[in-house]
Amino acid sequence: MSGSEVIERPDTEAPIEGKEPIVRFEKISKSFGELDVLKEVDLDLYPGERVAIIGPSGSGKTTMARLLMTLEEPTDGYIEVDGRQLWHKEVNGELVKANEKHLHEVRGDIGMVFQHFHLFPHMTVLKNLMEAPIKVKGQTKAKAREEALAMLEKVGMVDFADQYPARLSGGQQQRVAIARALVMHPKVMLFDEPTSALDPETVGEVLEVIKEIAKDREMAMMLITHEMSFARDIADRIAFFDEGKIQEQGPPAKLLNNPETERLGEFLNRFGIDGNHG
């Protein structure tokens, strides 16, 4: 798997040979009060795999990412990360609800890029990238700094290292946010509609950066997005969420060109494949 060309994709119809999933959602349900956002969803993500999640708003796709990032607790079901239960802990052969310490151990494998960036406004760009490696991973300042600068270089933001986030455009902030997540070297990276809050003219630069880092085939990526053409270009597999369930999933070419379900057909008609939705 060289992966330098986006056309080259692993066959994801079947599990990637010889590999165990890095993330496994098992019969995951989530309700907010009366509202059932997710209904017994199963989804596997393999190491290095890139899965795009599409679907109308309110379909539960963002909740998937938030459950995996431990921002929200599932109502029912299990999530496994690299062979370990995320929300549960085995005590005497029984699975009990995990405590904060357990969550802290497991979620180190996950990174996330938010729709609204959530950069730390009181720190410079460079400090934003150095804070967690130093405080959470115990890296030395020098090492953290070196890596932070390298990562900023990669997302084209090295010239802004000493600026404060408020001075940057949305697209620039999001590139920094991506770098901030990357310096933690997660095994799985979540992108929660990373371009939805951006001005149209800065969407492109962020998508370019995501494509660039997608060349790294070590890290799995889960992309929640409205950009259909982007999903087609970058994903190995697309999952279509609607009404709290995965209605259909498969390789982009098949899913986008020959949708099996009526709902997906309607959805694609409305949002188009060029990403020029309203």
Partner: peptide
């Protein structure tokens, strides 16, 4: 709230 969430996503403890 997003600041808390960003902190969680970087695996900071609640104290951090």
């Amino acid at each position: 709230q997003g600041q808390h969430e960003a902190g969680i996503s970087l695996n900071m403890t609640s104290l951090q």
